[in-house]
């Protein structure tokens, strides 16, 4: 049924969109901070890049989940199975953990990374400490991804 398919596509799109928004804001925050630091100390580009890239994972997780949906509903092969409305809802809801966890954790990870950037400006040797701090936030995006994968895996079409 077309509605089922539409819902499934909406789910994949949401995962990609919300994760992407989270990451974009997060990377943006960290990027602004690091440009500020680099205006004083251009040498730090390499180490700051790591911190700026870190909140980018949520977008990747969202993209990845969307791709799993694409695989699930057979867009790659062209053999699109008939989805009931319930199937569609199931796939949509299965995408929500990664979507919302990614949206919120991406933003907050960006904040942690931005303050990490300021820390590295003063303590260049302690680069990995803010990275670990940021990873603590990312945990919840990872868990969201995990549940989305498990849910998608469990839905039988």
């Amino acid at each position: 049924m077309a509605l089922g398919l539409t819902l499934a596509v909406l789910g994949g799109a949401l995962a990609c969109i919300l994760g992407g928004i989270g990451s974009a804001i997060g990377v943006g925050l960290a990027g602004q901070a690091s440009s500020g630091v680099m205006s004083e100390d251009p040498e730090k580009f390499g180490s700051l890049l790591l911190l700026v890239a870190l909140p980018g994972t949520q977008g990747i997780y969202g993209f990845l989940s969307a791709f799993l949906v694409i695989l699930k509903i057979g867009f790659t092969t062209g053999a699109i199975p008939k989805l009931t409305v319930f199937n569609g809802w199931q796939i949509l809801v299965a995408c929500l953990p990664v979507a919302f966890a990614g949206l919120v954790s991406g933003i907050h990870q960006g904040k942690v990374c931005a303050s990490g950037v300021y820390m590295v400006a003063k303590q260049p040797k302690d680069l990995m400490k803010p990275v670990i701090m940021a990873a603590l936030v990312e945990t919840y995006a990872v868990l969201g991804l995990l549940i989305t994968i498990l849910l998608l895996n469990g839905i039988k079409l």
């Binding site: 945990t139 991804l145 995990l146 994968i149």
Partner: peptide, 11 residues
């Protein structure tokens, strides 16, 4: 918390 091993491996 170790379930992240699965998620990252899968990713």
């Amino acid at each position: 918390s170790y379930s992240r091993l699965l998620a990252l491996g899968l990713a």
